Simulated assay, not measured.
Amino acid sequence: MADLLDRRALNRALLARQLLLERSPLAPLDAVEHLVGMQSQAPNPPYVGLWTRLTDFAFADLAALVETRAAVRILLMRGTIHLVSARDARALRPLAQTLLDRVVKGFEDVLPEALAAARAHFAERPRSAKELREMLAERWPGHDATELARAVHYALPLVQVPPRGVWGKSGLARHTNLDTWLDGVPGEPGTLDALVLRYLGAFGPATVRDAQRWSGLTGLGAVFDRLAPRLRTFRDADGRTLYDLPDAPRPDPDTPAPVRLVPDFDNLTLSHEDRSRVITEEHRKRVFTVNGIIRPTLLVDGFVHGMWAMDAARGTATVRVMPFAPLPDADAVEAEAGRLLAAAHPAAEHAVVIEPV
């Protein structure tokens, strides 16, 4: 019978893979690739996500990667925007396309022509969603321009370009073709086998359904079956089969886990069907809103213990912590919040507020 991994063992394994058990010396782009991308539905979370995972990370490091096109923001897993390396944009987008194609049904009569027109439209210069809708409405007045634009957006590999996605800057979301943006950057489509192996390296041990939840893809059971001779199997407390890379870290469940501030939309809380390895169902309902917002979370002893928020106004940057239960070490939480403020808003006055339970 496969070895049992209880909730705490799975927690420590996940933290180690996610670079949250101890900060890693990886370069930012290497960390983004190790994590198989970072959800970037909002532009700023990946900055905090890398800060909380890496040693000596400066927010300007990631901004430079985005501005030099070494990292890009593009629709990928679960049909959401992810920050990935240029190489992974080329590797992962074809794999995600089968998921995204589900959105584009219903325009078979005009979609090929609309895609060709949109591709040329974006090649001229980055365009906003409004510009795309206006072009489509003029060319195909008999169709709902908003829905046709949505189909085009999912069918074409489009990159959201700077200044959107650069820390400290803002701008209207504009897109261009992936090939236009990465002209001359080499890359090849990946394989589902490689995707599953990378998922396990960043999120394992995991079930088939966990991998499908993370990716949005279906039918991955056949991939796991094919990879099974290369994998090690475990079982969880409910008897589910967990797959893992044989040599991946699985720390002792009693390994200390430091306080961490995890940003909104982080894949840590999104990438398993059974999320109890990091968050209880009661707390999940407070973190995950009905309109799709995933709030920033506070980790204490490796598990979600509260939420937090950061804002800057009138020369003062503030981190406000909202614990779900009394903090065993409030000083550690305050110190971590102070370090985040120093990295994110070095020129501002800093304040940390821990709200009562």
Results as ranks from 00 to 15, higher is better:
N44H: 13
T52F: 00
G37S: 11
E33N: 15
N44E: 15
Y47H: 11
A58G: 14
L62T: 00
A60Y: 00
V66S: 05
V48S: 14
A63F: 06
A58I: 00
L62H: 02
V36G: 03
L65W: 04
L35S: 11
R53Y: 08
V66Y: 08
D61W: 05
G37T: 04
F57T: 05
G37L: 10
L65M: 06
E33H: 14
S40F: 15
Q39H: 03
A60V: 05
P45Y: 10
D56E: 12
A64T: 10
E33F: 15
Q41G: 08
A63G: 14
D61R: 02
D61K: 01
G37W: 00
A42F: 10
W51Q: 04
P45S: 13
G49V: 09
L62S: 03
T55F: 03
P43G: 12
W51K: 00
L54M: 01
W51S: 03
A63P: 06
P46K: 13
Q39S: 01
N44D: 09
V48H: 06
P46E: 09
L62D: 00
V36K: 03
D56S: 14
A64P: 05
E33T: 14
R53T: 13
A60S: 13
T52W: 01
G49E: 10
H34Y: 12
T52Y: 02
L65R: 02
P43F: 01
M38P: 04
E67M: 09
F59L: 14
N44K: 08
Y47S: 06
L65V: 03
V32R: 00
L54F: 05
P46A: 13
A58N: 13
R53C: 12
E67Q: 13
A58L: 03
Q39N: 09
P46V: 12
Q41E: 05
D61M: 06
V36I: 08
V32M: 10
E67T: 10
E67P: 07
L54H: 09
Q41V: 02
V48K: 07
T52M: 02
Y47G: 00
L62N: 03
A58V: 07
M38S: 02
L54D: 08
D56Y: 05
V66D: 02
W51H: 05
E33A: 14
F59D: 01
F59S: 08
H34M: 11
L35C: 12
E67K: 13
F59C: 08
H34T: 09
V36A: 11
T52L: 02
L35W: 14
N44F: 12
F59Y: 14
W51A: 05
E67G: 11
D56P: 09
A64F: 07
D61V: 03
A42S: 11
Y47W: 06
Q41F: 02
N44V: 13
L54G: 03
L35G: 02
T55I: 06
E67W: 07
Q39V: 02
Q41Y: 03
S40A: 14
W51I: 04
D61I: 08
D56H: 08
S40L: 07
P43Q: 13
L65Y: 00
A60Q: 09
A42L: 11
H34E: 15
R53E: 07
E67R: 15
A64D: 12
A42W: 11
D56L: 05
A58P: 11
D56T: 09
P45W: 05
L50I: 13
A64N: 04
P46F: 09
V32L: 15
R53W: 04
T52G: 02
E33M: 10
Q41T: 07
E33G: 10
